[in-house]
Computed example of a mutant assay.
Amino acid sequence: MTETAKQGPKQGTIHGVGLGPGDPDLMSVRADRLVRNARHVAYFRKAGRSGRARGIVEGMLAPGAVEFPMEYPVTTEIHFSDPRYNEILSEFYAAAAAHLAALSDAGEDVVVLCEGDPFFYGSFMHLYERLKDIRPVQVVPAITGMSAAWTATGAPVTWGDDMLSVCMATLPEDELAERLGAAEAVVVMKIGRNIDRVRNALKRAGKYERAWLVEYASMEGQTVQRLSEVEGKPTPYFSIIVVHGEGRRP
Protein backbone atom coordinates (compact mmCIF):
# COMPACT_ATOMS: atom_id res chain seq x y z
CA MET A 1 0.00 0.00 0.00
CA THR A 2 2.87 2.34 0.70
CA GLU A 3 6.41 2.63 -0.54
CA THR A 4 9.36 2.82 1.80
CA ALA A 5 11.52 5.91 1.61
CA LYS A 6 14.51 4.16 3.17
CA GLN A 7 17.27 2.65 1.03
CA GLY A 8 19.44 -0.35 1.85
CA PRO A 9 18.88 -4.10 2.32
CA LYS A 10 15.45 -5.44 1.50
CA GLN A 11 13.08 -4.64 4.31
CA GLY A 12 10.32 -6.83 5.60
CA THR A 13 6.69 -5.82 5.16
CA ILE A 14 4.43 -4.90 8.06
CA HIS A 15 0.96 -6.27 7.36
CA GLY A 16 -2.06 -4.84 9.14
CA VAL A 17 -4.39 -7.80 8.81
CA GLY A 18 -8.11 -7.35 9.42
CA LEU A 19 -9.56 -10.45 11.09
CA GLY A 20 -13.20 -9.49 10.77
CA PRO A 21 -15.79 -9.30 13.56
CA GLY A 22 -14.72 -12.39 15.49
CA ASP A 23 -15.69 -15.59 13.70
CA PRO A 24 -12.56 -17.01 11.99
CA ASP A 25 -14.80 -18.27 9.15
CA LEU A 26 -15.41 -14.63 8.20
CA MET A 27 -11.73 -13.87 7.59
CA SER A 28 -10.65 -13.21 4.01
CA VAL A 29 -8.54 -15.75 2.12
CA ARG A 30 -5.61 -13.31 2.13
CA ALA A 31 -5.87 -12.74 5.88
CA ASP A 32 -6.00 -16.49 6.52
CA ARG A 33 -2.93 -17.08 4.37
CA LEU A 34 -0.89 -14.32 5.99
CA VAL A 35 -1.78 -15.41 9.53
CA ARG A 36 -0.97 -19.07 8.94
CA ASN A 37 2.39 -18.33 7.33
CA ALA A 38 3.55 -15.54 9.64
CA ARG A 39 6.94 -15.80 11.35
CA HIS A 40 6.27 -12.71 13.48
CA VAL A 41 2.81 -11.88 14.85
CA ALA A 42 1.93 -8.74 16.79
CA TYR A 43 -1.37 -7.87 18.46
CA PHE A 44 -2.86 -5.47 20.98
CA ARG A 45 -4.24 -6.56 24.33
CA LYS A 46 -5.08 -5.31 27.78
CA ALA A 47 -2.60 -6.16 30.52
CA GLY A 48 -3.34 -9.58 31.95
CA ARG A 49 -5.55 -10.57 29.02
CA SER A 50 -4.78 -12.84 26.07
CA GLY A 51 -6.18 -10.34 23.59
CA ARG A 52 -9.34 -10.68 21.51
CA ALA A 53 -7.48 -10.52 18.19
CA ARG A 54 -5.13 -13.27 19.38
CA GLY A 55 -8.11 -15.36 20.41
CA ILE A 56 -9.60 -15.20 16.92
CA VAL A 57 -6.53 -16.91 15.43
CA GLU A 58 -6.11 -19.52 18.14
CA GLY A 59 -4.83 -22.72 16.52
CA MET A 60 -3.94 -20.97 13.26
CA LEU A 61 -0.39 -19.76 13.95
CA ALA A 62 2.57 -21.69 12.57
CA PRO A 63 4.76 -23.60 15.02
CA GLY A 64 7.59 -21.35 16.16
CA ALA A 65 5.83 -18.10 15.27
CA VAL A 66 7.23 -15.27 17.40
CA GLU A 67 4.49 -13.33 19.17
CA PHE A 68 4.72 -9.67 20.17
CA PRO A 69 1.83 -8.67 22.44
CA MET A 70 1.42 -4.90 22.68
CA GLU A 71 -0.17 -4.18 26.05
CA TYR A 72 -2.07 -0.94 26.44
CA PRO A 73 -0.58 1.13 29.28
CA VAL A 74 -3.96 2.72 29.93
CA THR A 75 -7.57 2.02 28.90
CA THR A 76 -10.28 3.57 31.08
CA GLU A 77 -8.14 4.52 34.09
CA ILE A 78 -7.66 8.02 32.67
CA HIS A 79 -10.37 9.81 30.68
CA PHE A 80 -9.42 10.43 27.05
CA SER A 81 -9.93 14.18 27.59
CA ASP A 82 -7.00 14.24 30.06
CA PRO A 83 -3.76 15.37 28.29
CA ARG A 84 -1.91 12.54 30.03
CA TYR A 85 -4.04 10.02 28.11
CA ASN A 86 -2.67 11.09 24.75
CA GLU A 87 0.86 11.46 26.10
CA ILE A 88 0.95 7.94 27.52
CA LEU A 89 -0.61 6.34 24.45
CA SER A 90 1.61 8.30 22.08
CA GLU A 91 4.71 6.92 23.80
CA PHE A 92 3.21 3.43 23.71
CA TYR A 93 2.46 3.54 19.98
CA ALA A 94 5.88 5.04 19.23
CA ALA A 95 7.63 2.20 21.07
CA ALA A 96 5.50 -0.46 19.35
CA ALA A 97 6.15 1.11 15.94
CA ALA A 98 9.89 1.17 16.65
CA HIS A 99 9.85 -2.55 17.46
CA LEU A 100 8.03 -3.36 14.21
CA ALA A 101 10.39 -1.10 12.26
CA ALA A 102 13.39 -2.96 13.69
CA LEU A 103 11.93 -6.28 12.55
CA SER A 104 11.35 -4.82 9.10
CA ASP A 105 14.96 -3.59 8.95
CA ALA A 106 16.09 -7.12 9.76
CA GLY A 107 14.21 -8.32 6.68
CA GLU A 108 11.36 -9.88 8.65
CA ASP A 109 7.72 -9.65 7.62
CA VAL A 110 5.32 -8.97 10.48
CA VAL A 111 1.57 -9.65 10.70
CA VAL A 112 -0.29 -7.27 13.01
CA LEU A 113 -3.59 -8.84 14.00
CA CYS A 114 -6.48 -6.35 13.85
CA GLU A 115 -10.03 -6.92 15.06
CA GLY A 116 -12.58 -5.87 12.47
CA ASP A 117 -11.12 -3.69 9.72
CA PRO A 118 -7.71 -2.09 10.38
CA PHE A 119 -8.85 1.33 9.12
CA PHE A 120 -12.13 1.44 11.08
CA TYR A 121 -11.54 2.74 14.63
CA GLY A 122 -8.67 0.29 15.10
CA SER A 123 -5.46 0.71 17.11
CA PHE A 124 -3.39 -0.32 14.10
CA MET A 125 -4.09 3.07 12.52
CA HIS A 126 -1.75 4.69 15.05
CA LEU A 127 1.06 2.36 14.00
CA TYR A 128 0.24 2.87 10.33
CA GLU A 129 0.60 6.64 10.59
CA ARG A 130 4.01 6.26 12.22
CA LEU A 131 5.30 3.67 9.73
CA LYS A 132 3.66 4.23 6.35
CA ASP A 133 6.27 6.65 4.99
CA ILE A 134 9.37 4.92 6.33
CA ARG A 135 8.72 1.16 6.06
CA PRO A 136 6.77 -1.13 3.68
CA VAL A 137 3.23 -1.39 5.06
CA GLN A 138 0.26 -3.24 3.58
CA VAL A 139 -3.28 -3.36 4.90
CA VAL A 140 -5.76 -6.21 4.49
CA PRO A 141 -9.36 -4.97 4.83
CA ALA A 142 -12.06 -6.99 6.56
CA ILE A 143 -15.71 -7.23 7.55
CA THR A 144 -16.50 -4.73 10.29
CA GLY A 145 -18.17 -5.53 13.56
CA MET A 146 -21.11 -3.30 12.69
CA SER A 147 -21.74 -5.29 9.50
CA ALA A 148 -21.88 -8.48 11.55
CA ALA A 149 -24.23 -6.75 14.01
CA TRP A 150 -26.83 -5.59 11.53
CA THR A 151 -26.66 -8.95 9.75
CA ALA A 152 -27.37 -10.63 13.08
CA THR A 153 -30.64 -8.68 13.36
CA GLY A 154 -31.91 -10.37 10.21
CA ALA A 155 -32.90 -7.14 8.45
CA PRO A 156 -31.22 -4.75 5.98
CA VAL A 157 -29.81 -1.67 7.70
CA THR A 158 -30.38 0.82 4.87
CA TRP A 159 -32.91 1.21 2.06
CA GLY A 160 -32.96 3.54 -0.95
CA ASP A 161 -31.73 6.98 0.10
CA ASP A 162 -31.36 6.25 3.81
CA MET A 163 -28.45 8.07 5.43
CA LEU A 164 -26.43 5.87 7.81
CA SER A 165 -24.69 7.47 10.78
CA VAL A 166 -22.03 5.68 12.86
CA CYS A 167 -21.86 7.28 16.30
CA MET A 168 -19.63 6.75 19.31
CA ALA A 169 -21.37 6.28 22.65
CA THR A 170 -18.60 8.35 24.21
CA LEU A 171 -20.07 11.56 22.74
CA PRO A 172 -21.87 14.01 25.08
CA GLU A 173 -25.58 13.23 25.25
CA ASP A 174 -26.71 16.41 23.50
CA GLU A 175 -24.37 15.87 20.56
CA LEU A 176 -25.23 12.17 20.36
CA ALA A 177 -28.97 12.91 20.31
CA GLU A 178 -28.48 15.45 17.54
CA ARG A 179 -26.48 13.07 15.38
CA LEU A 180 -28.87 10.19 15.98
CA GLY A 181 -31.79 12.36 14.97
CA ALA A 182 -30.17 13.51 11.74
CA ALA A 183 -29.86 10.04 10.17
CA GLU A 184 -32.41 7.47 9.05
CA ALA A 185 -30.26 4.45 9.99
CA VAL A 186 -27.92 4.40 12.97
CA VAL A 187 -25.07 2.35 14.41
CA VAL A 188 -23.80 3.17 17.91
CA MET A 189 -20.47 1.71 19.01
CA LYS A 190 -18.30 1.68 22.16
CA ILE A 191 -21.30 1.15 24.42
CA GLY A 192 -20.19 -0.40 27.72
CA ARG A 193 -20.62 2.00 30.63
CA ASN A 194 -22.13 4.61 28.30
CA ILE A 195 -25.40 2.72 27.86
CA ASP A 196 -27.58 5.10 29.91
CA ARG A 197 -26.41 8.09 27.87
CA VAL A 198 -27.18 6.20 24.66
CA ARG A 199 -30.66 5.22 25.85
CA ASN A 200 -31.48 8.84 26.67
CA ALA A 201 -30.10 10.09 23.36
CA LEU A 202 -32.09 7.51 21.38
CA LYS A 203 -35.29 8.46 23.19
CA ARG A 204 -34.69 12.14 22.45
CA ALA A 205 -34.04 11.28 18.79
CA GLY A 206 -37.27 9.25 18.57
CA LYS A 207 -35.42 6.03 17.74
CA TYR A 208 -35.46 4.12 21.01
CA GLU A 209 -38.26 1.70 20.19
CA ARG A 210 -36.58 0.75 16.89
CA ALA A 211 -33.16 0.10 18.42
CA TRP A 212 -31.57 -3.35 18.59
CA LEU A 213 -28.76 -4.31 20.95
CA VAL A 214 -26.29 -6.85 19.54
CA GLU A 215 -23.67 -8.23 21.90
CA TYR A 216 -20.59 -10.09 20.64
CA ALA A 217 -21.67 -10.05 16.99
CA SER A 218 -20.51 -13.23 15.18
CA MET A 219 -18.66 -14.37 18.32
CA GLU A 220 -19.42 -17.01 20.90
CA GLY A 221 -22.15 -15.68 23.18
CA GLN A 222 -23.82 -13.49 20.53
CA THR A 223 -27.19 -12.07 21.60
CA VAL A 224 -29.68 -9.97 19.64
CA GLN A 225 -32.40 -8.14 21.57
CA ARG A 226 -34.62 -5.10 21.40
CA LEU A 227 -32.87 -2.44 23.45
CA SER A 228 -36.16 -1.49 25.12
CA GLU A 229 -36.53 -5.06 26.40
CA VAL A 230 -33.23 -5.13 28.32
CA GLU A 231 -33.58 -2.14 30.63
CA GLY A 232 -31.13 -2.23 33.51
CA LYS A 233 -29.01 -4.99 31.99
CA PRO A 234 -25.21 -4.46 32.08
CA THR A 235 -23.85 -3.98 28.59
CA PRO A 236 -20.39 -5.25 27.58
CA TYR A 237 -18.00 -3.04 25.63
CA PHE A 238 -18.30 -5.29 22.57
CA SER A 239 -21.89 -4.27 21.97
CA ILE A 240 -23.39 -2.45 19.02
CA ILE A 241 -26.76 -0.76 18.76
CA VAL A 242 -28.48 -0.81 15.37
CA VAL A 243 -31.46 1.24 14.21
CA HIS A 244 -32.61 0.20 10.74
CA GLY A 245 -33.54 2.67 8.07
CA GLU A 246 -37.04 2.61 6.59
CA GLY A 247 -36.37 4.29 3.27
CA ARG A 248 -37.43 3.97 -0.33
CA ARG A 249 -37.87 0.50 -1.79
CA PRO A 250 -39.72 -0.96 -4.83
Score class of each variant (00 low, 15 high):
E209G: 08
A95I: 01
R193A: 14
A102C: 05
Q222Y: 03
E58T: 03
R249W: 12
F119H: 02
A211G: 00
P118M: 08
A42S: 11
R135P: 12
L164C: 04
A42T: 07
P24K: 09
V230N: 02
W212N: 09
T13D: 07
A148C: 07
H244Y: 01
P73I: 12
R130I: 08
S239T: 12
A205C: 09
G48M: 03
L171R: 05
L61A: 08
K10F: 06
P141C: 03
G18K: 10
S123I: 03
M60E: 07
P63L: 13
T151D: 00
V186W: 00
K207N: 04
M70I: 13
F44V: 07
H99C: 13
T76R: 15
H79N: 05
E215I: 03
V137R: 11
L113G: 08
L103C: 07
L113E: 11
G221N: 08
A5N: 06
G160N: 10
V74S: 07
I240H: 05
A98G: 13
E87H: 10
G55C: 13
A217W: 07
D117V: 04
R52Y: 01
Q222N: 01
R49N: 14
E231S: 14
V198R: 05
P250M: 03
F44W: 08
K46P: 08
M219Y: 05
N37F: 00
A5H: 02
K207T: 08
P118C: 11
K46G: 15
M60F: 13
E77N: 04
R84M: 14
S228P: 00
G20P: 10
V243Q: 05
N194D: 06
V224I: 10
A211S: 06
A31V: 06
V29Y: 13
P250F: 11
G59M: 04
F68A: 11
G18I: 02
V110L: 07
I241E: 09
G247T: 02
R226K: 14
A152M: 14
P73C: 14
V242A: 09
T153H: 12
C114M: 06
A217T: 00
K207D: 05
E231G: 03
E246V: 08
E3G: 15
G122A: 15
V187P: 10
M125C: 08
I191C: 15
D174W: 00
P234Q: 00
T235Q: 13
R199S: 07
Y208D: 00
T151V: 11
K10A: 15
Q11E: 09
S28K: 03
G48Y: 05
E209K: 07
K6A: 12
E87S: 14
T2G: 13
T158Q: 02
M60S: 04
A185T: 00
I191D: 09
S81A: 09
P83G: 01
D109G: 05
R197L: 01
A106G: 13
A106H: 02
T144D: 09
P73S: 10
E108A: 10
A211N: 09
G245T: 04
Y237Q: 02
R249S: 15
Y72L: 15
R226C: 05
K132C: 12
T235N: 09
V166L: 15
A183R: 01
T75H: 02
